[in-house]
Structure formats: structure tokens, C-alpha cells
């Protein structure tokens, strides 16, 4: 991978991580978390681990969906 692409995709990952820590609203946090996941996949695929990328791409949304169940329960209680 060229340095330009490494810098750009690393910038996406870093931006997602920092804003996940900063935001207060849980939905904003989840959107930033999926930005973080998006920046990682080019690095995985560039090394040739296509199967790892496919598995991780299916696992990350499942984690988000289970987290959303907790958010929905909080919203109903409040």
C-alpha cells in the first residue's frame, strides 16, 4: 500500500476512534464506531486476509445490533 492511502485510511480510523470517545449520544457513538470499523478493512485486505475481512465485516454489525437492543430498552424505561 502506498503511503498516501495508508495515511488516508488511518485518518478515517483515527477520526472514528476519537469521536467515539467524545460524543455523548449513544447513536452518535455507534455511527462513529462503524466509521472506525470502515477504516480498518483496507488494511486487512491489503495483507491478503480476505476471509478474515469477510468474517469481521459480518461480526461488527452483529455487535452493533446487540448494543442497539440495550439502547432501545433504556429509551423505553426513561
Amino acid at each position: 500500500m502506498n503511503e498516501l492511502y495508508a495515511i488516508l485510511f488511518g485518518f478515517i480510523t483515527l477520526l472514528g476512534g476519537v469521536t467515539t470517545a467524545i460524543y455523548r449520544d449513544p447513536f452518535d457513538k455507534l455511527i462513529s464506531l462503524s466509521l472506525l470499523a470502515a477504516g480498518i478493512f483496507p488494511f486487512i485486505v491489503d495483507r491478503g486476509y480476505v476471509d478474515v475481512a469477510a468474517a469481521a465485516a459480518l461480526i461488527a454489525p452483529l455487535g452493533t445490533i446487540f448494543t442497539l437492543m440495550v439502547c432501545r430498552r433504556r429509551a423505553r424505561d426513561a
Binding site: F9, V45, D51, I65
Partner: peptide, 30 residues
């Protein structure tokens, strides 16, 4: 798009479809 441009191999089709459907499902659920 960048996944496919980084590694042009038939198995990358599966990774692209998995990533795209996964991220769409995530946005849909949110």
C-alpha cells in the same frame, strides 16, 4: 470500492458483498 481495487481476486467479491451488506444492515438497524 477500495477493497476491490487493493486486491483484485475472485474471493474479494465475497468480502466486498459481506462488508457492504453488513454496513447497510448496521445503518438500517441504527
Amino acid at each position: 470500492g477500495s477493497l476491490m481495487l487493493l486486491l483484485p481476486h475472485p474471493l474479494t467479491i465475497l468480502a466486498c458483498a459481506a462488508y457492504f451488506v453488513g454496513s447497510t444492515l448496521e445503518s438500517n438497524a441504527i
